[in-house]
Design a protein around this nucleic acid. Structure first.
Lengths: 204, 204
DNA sequence: TGAAAATACGAGTGATCGCTCGTGTTTGTC
DNA sequence: GACAAACACGAGCGATCACTCGTATTTTCA
């Protein structure tokens, strides 16, 4: 029952968004594997059959969610381009960290989709897209800031930087809202301590 | 079919170890959720019924594995105590990082058991034990090194340090063996960059 | 207005998987 | 050698869950 091409009505578009919201909520609560498609449909106030009217299978919903996340990240990172490479390191770190934290806090469901050690292969594809997009951005900025750094070491640095986010952001998201600012400060300390020797003072 | 007290024979002890090995292998390959008890039994060259002769359920095997991990970590961290608090920071970092990396590389199955965002509640218990053990060790060392640091900030520092391991070690384990040394260097750069301002030069 | 397309329903199906149980085999003890 | 306890087997039970399908309703558009 996978409609190859369907002329969606406005109602259909709305349902798809509602189903994505429901999926995000359920994923956030019980994780991806334990989330049942029937629970997602129920959460959206819809029958199981209706869910499958719009999404071919469970993975397809997760992919839609991952794409939405990618979009949000792209927007949020709009102020992080090679042109900003000469800003003081603290500013650069703010422009990396703050949107990342904001998007993750606003979308608790996504922690269930990313950074999982064991993911169905199909889900790994949108995950890699997000990864690649972030990697590309950081790599471009680092390259602009340090043209002399060789590509291999730069790649390692970008990879490690991304893993630092991957390691610390779940902690920040899981923390009580009152505790988050202090943890964000720690995140930035980590980034500054790691990046300062390589990216130098830059700008100022 | 849960034997409350059983006089294990040598054969039984051997089987239990074989089942733990098989579980570690299967967990490493497909992750915890996707691992079937029948697959674990088959991997150990044993029938499903035999598996349940020794372990009450799937969680119980995971717990046994987690306990084994905790034991290995304890041994590996033997040279990290408050008495070593005055060593140069680089030495201290070596004593934290090297055993951590070694144990994780030697036990690829455990990455499926720890650092998961969504874990069955029962499995969270041995996970917390490991967490608490590592936390206690680091906290004691940091406290000995910086008696003036207030407990709240020290706790945050320990927590962040642990998350740094949690974020970077999977990357190191997943990397080709030839690439690992360079990544361990990066891990230590991260730790040094973050901890140096707080833990100071110490010792030397 | 009427028919086609899109949306919606929800009981049901097939497959999977954790776990059991009746039965047979090996090991330890007297 | 005899008896009990531990070990081992593997077909299959019960529950869960992704997904289907026949049918009913709403929307679109000529």
């Amino acid at each position: 029952m996978v409609p190859v091409t369907v002329r969606r009505q406005a109602r259909g578009e709305r349902r798809m968004a509602e189903l994505q919201d429901a999926a995000a909520a359920v994923f956030a609560e019980v994780g991806y594997e334990a989330a049942t498609t029937n629970a997602i449909a129920a959460r959206a106030g819809v029958s199981p059959g209706t869910l499958y009217q719009f999404y071919a299978n469970k993975e397809a919903i997760a992919q839609a969610l991952a794409d939405r996340y990618l979009e949000q990240l792209r927007e949020a990172h709009g102020s992080l381009t090679p042109e900003h490479a000469d800003l003081p390191l603290d500013d650069l770190i703010d422009r990396m960290a703050d949107p990342m934290v904001a998007v993750n806090v606003a979308n608790p469901g996504f922690k269930a989709l990313f950074g999982r050690p064991d993911m169905p292969e199909k889900l790994a594809i949108p995950t890699r897209n997000v990864h690649a997009a972030v990697f590309g951005r950081l790599d471009a900025v680092f390259a602009a800031r340090c043209p002399d750094l060789d590509a291999v070491q730069r790649g390692r640095t970008v990879m490690v930087t991304m893993q630092l986010f991957g390691g610390l952001i779940p902690m920040i998201v899981a923390a009580a809202p009152d505790d988050r600012p202090a943890l964000v400060v720690e995140l930035k300390k980590v980034l500054r301590g790691y990046l300062a020797p390589m990216l130098g003072a830059g700008g100022i």
